[in-house]
């Protein structure tokens, strides 16, 4: 039986993980959320993740550094960068280093879900398009997610 897709979510703003973990859980993926990049990298060193979703601008480490370290550990991992400070230069740099996709905040949880589905399929997983249940205990699932 195919194992669940493993997603690691890293954003130093706790609200992001709080909103996105339930949104991604609806896809049937296993998601672990971190606010500290070093703690996230320690977990990545111990466990293989299929997809890493990381913020770009964080106090301790930027998303491009996380991207490099994740790909060093496992080049197969799909890394998705999320940021409130998107520019053409950062987007191109992220892609050149090997990011799978790049999305600017604010975005709707469904926007990220679509990218996660695309990444999981690129890895050969069978993932359903629509979440099992569109209602959310944390409010409107399609409300935009902002932040840095």
């Amino acid at each position: 039986m195919e194992r669940q897709v493993r997603v690691l979510l890293l954003d130093d703003e706790p609200i992001v993980g709080k909103r996105l973990v339930p949104a991604l859980a609806k896809l049937g993926v296993e998601t672990e959320s971190f606010t500290d990049p070093e703690a996230a990298l320690r977990q990545i060193a111990q466990k293989d993740f299929d997809i890493v979703v990381t913020d770009f601008r964080m106090d301790k480490m930027d998303g491009l550094e996380v991207l490099k370290r994740v790909l060093q550990k496992n080049p197969r991992t799909k890394v998705i960068i999320i940021t409130g400070y998107a520019t053409l230069e950062i987007a191109r740099q992220a892609l050149a280093i090997g990011a799978f996709d790049f999305i600017a905040k604010p975005f709707k949880p469904n926007d990220l879900r679509n990218i996660v589905v695309k990444a999981a399929r690129a890895l050969g997983y069978k993932v359903k398009d629509k979440p099992e249940d569109s209602s959310s205990a944390n409010g409107d699932p399609d409300r935009e997610l902002s932040g840095s």
């Binding site: 998107a86 053409l88 050149a96 790049f102 999305i103 600017a104």
Partner: peptide, 13 residues
């Protein structure tokens, strides 16, 4: 063919 010029969610938006 360079990766940096490939479309992504942000640039398409």
């Amino acid at each position: 063919g360079y990766r940096k010029f490939q479309p992504m969610t942000y640039s398409l938006k």
